[in-house]
Simulated scan of single mutants.
Amino acid sequence: MSRVVGSELIEDARQRGRVVFEILPGDIITDVARETAARIGIRLVDGPLERPAPVKTDGTTAMRRLMYKRSARWVAPRRGAILPARRFSKLALVGAGGVGGNIAHLAAMADMADEIALIDIAPGLAAATALDLNHATGITGARARCLGGEDLSQVSGADVVVVTAGRARSPGMTRADLIGVNARVIQTAAEAIRTQAPQAIVIVVTNPLDEMTTEMLRATGFPRERVLGMAGTLDSSRFRNALAMAAGVTPADVQAITLGSHGEEMAPIPSLARIKGAPLEKFLSPERIAACVQDAVTGGGQVVALKKMGSATIAPAHASVELLDHIRGARSGPVPVSVRLDGEYGIEGVVLGVPAHLGASGLVEVEELRLTEEERDALRRAADAIKARLAS
């Protein structure tokens, strides 16, 4: 039977690790599929292709191999060595408030750096937090030495710089309301990072996150691989928590991801979410799923409304540490992170939350998931909204 070969089949082939896609007689291939294949490096080949004949083993050889494996001299092949996670020489945190202080604590407990530098314009805050963390080492045994101060030159020589500094939201404020004031904070931090730590990977946590990551890219001049935004890890965690509570399971039973912007245009992806390995519909009604999506989108605002002054600190710190773990090799696989897209998902030149593989040099590769058309539309709307905010 003839097929209509669209871009989704080409993307599926890429997800399966194929570099060749076979076009059978009678197949109709769309122009979009051809463009997608050219963009992601899949070769379209007219078929049917000749398959190699299966290797047949005679009974005598098969029995000889079996008996050899049963002998005392046979040794199982050694598994490839698993490389230990590396430790950063220096981790710098621009902002020593709730998020920065929690990141420093978690990083010290995870033994991920020789030195952790905290920087904050509030007199004494960074130094006090660093001293407090050093006092705890007599109990925790953490090897990292912490130092703190107000001078941005302390980012010097850092492998990774996490920027959390900036004004937090108050009740009634959106993240977009912070663009003007926090852009100046990012510009100041970027100048210090560009001159003092020119090889560092930068993780932006300051809101509005996608816009501030864009500003960090512009102000440092760094390649997109070394300027990342922490958003999707936090938003995905909130989505998993909402689904777990609705279904009456633990969050460990839930796999779910959130893409798009870190704001009103957030795009939780229900089609790929699973509870105990099964689609959401097995456990939840469409109305409950929609409520969980809304809970993820408004999760940060719920914390702001309860605190009155300030925003979430603990969950963003854990989300930031998850990115640090991927960079240093303590975790593997794709993780949602804000990066500037260069054609992935059909979007160009916009910082947006997408699943990506990270490594010692920062971004390794953006992973393109199979999304529904509605979910793709949500990504496009998020990109358009970010462009509009930056333009204004």
Rank of each mutant, 00 (worst) to 15 (best):
L9Y: 09
E11M: 08
R14H: 14
V20W: 09
F21Y: 14
D31N: 06
R34L: 05
E35I: 03
K56R: 15
T57I: 15
G59T: 08
T60A: 15
Y68C: 04
W74Y: 15
V75W: 05
R78V: 11
R86V: 10
L93Y: 10
G95V: 09
A96L: 01
G97D: 08
V99Y: 06
I103R: 05
A107F: 04
L118T: 01
I119M: 11
A122L: 10
G124V: 01
A126G: 03
A126W: 07
A127H: 10
A128L: 10
T129D: 02
T129G: 01
L131C: 00
L131T: 13
A136E: 14
G138E: 11
G148F: 05
A158V: 07
G172P: 10
A183H: 04
I193H: 01
P198M: 07
T206F: 09
P208S: 01
D210H: 13
T213N: 10
L228P: 00
G232Y: 03
S236A: 07
A242Y: 13
A247T: 11
G248P: 09
T258Y: 04
H262L: 14
A273F: 00
L280C: 09
K282G: 10
S285D: 14
P286N: 06
Q294L: 12
D295C: 15
T298A: 11
K307A: 14
K308W: 09
G310Y: 06
S332V: 05
V339F: 06
G346P: 02
V351F: 01
L352N: 02
A356S: 02
R370G: 14
A378D: 10
R380C: 02
R381Y: 08
I386K: 01
